[in-house]
């Protein structure tokens, strides 16, 4: 596999605020990538720089081996669907106008697929875009992004406002179409556990930095929570990387980054309770650990 996107030491400052702080990662060609992080972690800024909507303060991005900025070769391979995308109300007022424009611009546009998706999401071609609900507007974005079949398709929080049924539909259609037409799909999301099975790879941003960049399968079953009497828990975690430690009276709970099968059975035989943790919990713990470290370094 080859790298389709490479990001190195990317920073973006808004005045004194560092929205992105020396971000580096690479994305392989053909895969579904999740960009995860809290509000304000820098997800949107990062995606805007990748799609050359915004200009980075420092660092470098290459897509398909070239700089994307004002590069019509690179840009014609990209579709970017934003959260709360604004559509041109009076110039292209109807759903069919917005789709018509997409059909003109995207080389790999599949009208049959677009029509099928419209029916799935119950979007009426003659509806005015202005009159769509938040969820329907999000669905329109999803239709455009999927039917564009752009080699690099980027969704920024594609489903804000979409109900669980519509989100499930999005996942199903995305997977089925991805299987037939593999391409590089990146989407930012809060809903880690819901999307986890789809994602091949997860990149977690926190305060403008990458705190986790790993294959989803490698993350599963690695991290664990160890519970028991505080003294025993403390003994167990001595040589482990602790993400988060909680204490209630003499009872303790530790989230650890990585634990082997033999360690786990040893702790269980010592009377501790060891459970694997979900991806969402792992990311929350990682994020907390990161902000704790930051607070310490600030002192």
């Amino acid at each position: 596999m080859s790298k389709i996107i490479e990001v190195s030491n990317l920073s973006k400052n808004f005045g004194s605020l560092k929205a992105l702080d020396k971000v580096s990662f690479a994305i392989e060609q053909d895969g579904i990538y999740g960009l995860v992080g809290r509000n304000g972690a820098g997800k949107t800024t990062l995606l805007e720089i990748l799609t050359s909507q915004t200009i980075a303060s420092e660092g470098e991005v290459t897509i398909l081996g070239q700089h994307p900025f004002e590069n019509s070769y690179v840009m014609s391979n990209i579709a970017f669907i934003k959260e709360a995308q604004r559509y041109p109300d009076n110039i292209l007022p109807k759903v069919k106008d917005v789709l018509g424009a997409a059909a003109l611009i995207f080389e790999n546009w599949d009208q049959g697929f677009a029509d099928q998706l419209l029916a799935d999401f119950r979007l009426d071609l003659k509806r005015k875009v202005r009159k769509l609900s938040k969820g329907q507007t999000a669905a329109l974005g999803v239709v455009i992004g999927l039917a564009s079949r752009a080699p690099v398709t980027i969704f920024d929080e594609p489903y804000s406002g979409m109900d669980p049924v519509a989100r499930q539909l999005f996942y199903d259609r995305l997977l089925a179409d991805y299987a037939e037409n593999p391409r590089t799909i990146i989407f930012s999301t809060h809903l880690v556990d819901e999307a986890a099975d789809l994602l091949e790879h997860i990149i977690v941003l926190e305060s403008g930095r990458v705190i986790l960049d790993a294959a989803t399968e490698d993350l599963r079953g690695q991290a664990a929570v160890i519970e028991g009497p505080m003294a025993k828990v403390m003994g167990a975690i001595e040589k482990l990387e602790v993400l988060e430690l909680q204490e209630v009276g003499s009872f303790g709970r530790a989230f650890v980054n990585q634990i082997s099968q033999s360690q786990s059975s040893k702790f269980v035989s010592e009377g501790l309770n060891v459970q694997p943790i979900s991806l969402q919990q792992l990311i929350i713990s990682k994020t907390k650990q990161n902000s704790n470290l930051e607070m310490e370094s600030a002192k």
């Binding site: 970017f80 995308q85 041109p88 110039i91 917005v98 424009a101 995207f106």
Partner: peptide
């Protein structure tokens, strides 16, 4: 003004360059 203001963000998200 309407054409420029409305179409510019959409065109760029469709992968059109500023120049084009």
């Amino acid at each position: 003004n309407q054409v420029f203001l409305n179409q510019f963000p959409l065109a760029l998200s469709y992968g059109v360059t500023r120049r084009d």
